[in-house]
Computed example of a mutant assay.
Amino acid sequence: MTTFEMLFTAGLVVAVGFIGLVAARRTGNGDWRIAGLIGAAFAGYSMIPILREGPTGFYPIHVVNFWGVQVWFDLALSLSCAVFLAAPRARCAGMALAPWLLLVLLGGSIGLLALLTRLFWLERNAPTQA
């Protein structure tokens, strides 16, 4: 098994496990510490291809064939759905959305995880209504 196959498999195992944990959870909102940890870890890993292959190294992969474009559409759709779901909560929490949406557009999942980290932190630390 190549390094890339091992990384692919590890990502699959982590995603399935995480989705299983989320599905089993009965109550509660997102935890800003988990979102922040995942975002920081992914940002750290992302530095490897950025430094080795450049900040636009993803582009050739997504324009080489139909699968590449399909994966690009899948990523764009997933980010769009996540923003669609998070935006109303972010507005209610008092977040100015424009800078966060720009971060999502420029940073993809890293930006989204930063947005969610801030959102979850604000929700957890909101003053209680008397």
Rank of each mutant, 00 (worst) to 15 (best):
M1E: 13
T2D: 09
T3L: 15
F4S: 13
E5V: 11
E5T: 12
T9G: 15
T9M: 12
A10R: 02
A10D: 01
A10I: 09
A10S: 05
V13P: 01
V14I: 05
V14Y: 02
A15T: 08
V16R: 01
V16E: 01
I19K: 08
I19P: 05
G20C: 00
L21S: 05
V22W: 04
A23M: 05
A24V: 07
R26G: 06
R26F: 06
T27H: 12
G30M: 00
G30R: 01
W32R: 05
R33I: 03
A35E: 08
A35R: 02
A35C: 06
G39P: 00
A40R: 01
A41P: 00
A41N: 08
A41T: 11
F42P: 01
P49D: 04
P49A: 04
P49S: 06
I50M: 13
L51M: 10
L51I: 13
R52F: 08
R52M: 12
E53A: 15
E53W: 11
E53D: 15
G54S: 02
P55W: 11
P55F: 14
T56Y: 15
T56E: 11
F58D: 10
F58Q: 09
Y59F: 12
Y59S: 04
P60A: 05
I61Q: 10
H62W: 10
H62R: 08
H62N: 12
V64S: 14
F66V: 10
F66L: 12
W67M: 09
W67F: 13
W67P: 06
G68I: 03
V69A: 14
Q70S: 15
V71M: 10
W72M: 12
F73E: 06
F73I: 15
D74L: 03
D74E: 13
L77C: 11
L79V: 15
L79N: 08
A82P: 08
A82E: 13
V83C: 12
F84T: 10
F84Y: 15
L85E: 13
A86M: 05
A87S: 12
R89D: 02
A90L: 02
A90D: 00
R91G: 03
C92A: 10
A93Y: 01
A93R: 04
A93K: 01
M95H: 06
M95E: 04
M95N: 03
A96F: 05
A96H: 14
L97I: 02
A98E: 03
L101W: 01
L102R: 09
L102K: 05
L103S: 12
L105N: 07
G107V: 04
I110F: 06
G111Q: 05
L112Q: 00
L113S: 08
L113C: 05
A114Q: 07
L115P: 04
L115Y: 02
L116M: 06
L116Y: 05
L116S: 06
T117V: 13
T117L: 15
R118W: 14
F120C: 04
W121T: 11
L122S: 03
E123L: 00
R124A: 09
R124F: 09
N125A: 10
N125H: 15
A126S: 03
A126W: 00
T128S: 14
T128D: 13
Q129Y: 09
Q129A: 14
A130H: 15
A130P: 14
